[in-house]
Design a protein around this nucleic acid. Structure first.
Lengths: 165, 165
DNA sequence: CCTTGACCTCAACCGAGATTGAGGTTACAG
DNA sequence: CTGTAACCTCAATCTCGGTTGAGGTCAAGG
């Protein structure tokens, strides 16, 4: 267990809340993310920690917002690599402030809007398709979206002339 | 190459279109799916084939609709395992008809609606969050969705009392 | 008959996003 | 001082949805 020793307790009034460090287990408990995932994020450079003399991780409190941002971003559908890039734009010299987080959050709006629109189009097509009951490769918008017809990548792609199927 | 020999050509008028079989390469070309993926789907039981005397795959034409259904389902975000279950409900004795496909497509509507709604809620929350700039674990709807608070799976989950962060 | 492209199997590998386990250390409460 | 929970590293393993490659067969055109 880890707690304040009664002997060496620092003058708590003089230590700003921001400077109270967290163990990996505390971050896990408070963020709902497994310790193994935190280690993983750290290896990937998404979060970082100070090490104690005994090689244990100690996190600044703002790691909670970082982890929070990571999870929210994942829900938006952003891969870790892109989340990592976004986090890399945060100032290195100071703890990120509200405006920093706002900027990053705003950046995902575009992605999210695009994904929602895409799914809505898919839903409309699916609705039509339920009506036509087709899924025909030569006729159905759903079965045969434009992007399946060429110009994107190697390999044979619908080279043959359409015939009834 | 594979084509009709002029000698043994069957009376084409007497062979319903449905009975014309396809090679794996033809299915790949017509569906836009790689041969390796078709093999993969077959191993997973999503599609099936007859084998020629020389052990080559021959597909019934309705495999095209199956593959089509698989790709559409994937776009909806359904994992292969569930697609497989859905396909397993198709009649084994006859080729699926329009109504069969309609039933399956309709089933995904619910999923799609749910996913869209979820993303829209996320977008709304993100908008709020941009306004509040928070991502605070103790206050932000985004950072702290209900489902992070317990009852779903093992492991410690936000066991500590909330403190300012 | 020969060449060539399409086909076959099986195993290994990829990348994303982690989790699990072995083997060992640290830190704190009693 | 000791017990033990929490921590450490590193490698292996997992799921998902495939791709790649080696080594070999099949089938059709010339």
């Amino acid at each position: 267990m880890r707690g304040n020793t009664s002997d060496t307790e620092p003058d708590i009034e003089r230590v700003p809340w921001d400077h109270v460090e967290l163990t990996v287990g505390e971050v896990a408990a408070r963020s709902g993310v497994a310790v193994s995932a935190l280690h993983f994020y750290e290896r990937r450079g998404l979060i970082s920690s100070r090490r104690t003399s005994g090689n244990q991780r100690r996190y600044r409190r703002d790691v909670l917002r970082r982890v929070s941002f990571i999870r929210v971003s994942q829900r938006v559908g952003i891969p870790l690599a892109r989340i990592s890039e976004a986090l890399a734009t945060l100032p290195a010299d100071r703890a990120p402030n509200v405006r920093d987080w706002e900027r990053l959050s705003r950046a995902w709006r575009t992605d999210l809007d695009a994904r929602i629109e895409q799914l809505q189009r898919l839903r409309d097509d699916l609705t039509d398709c339920i009506g036509c009951g087709c899924l025909s490769l030569s006729r159905c918008v759903l079965a045969n979206p434009k992007d399946a017809l060429g110009q994107d990548g190697p390999g044979p792609r619908r080279l043959l002339v359409d015939e009834p199927d």
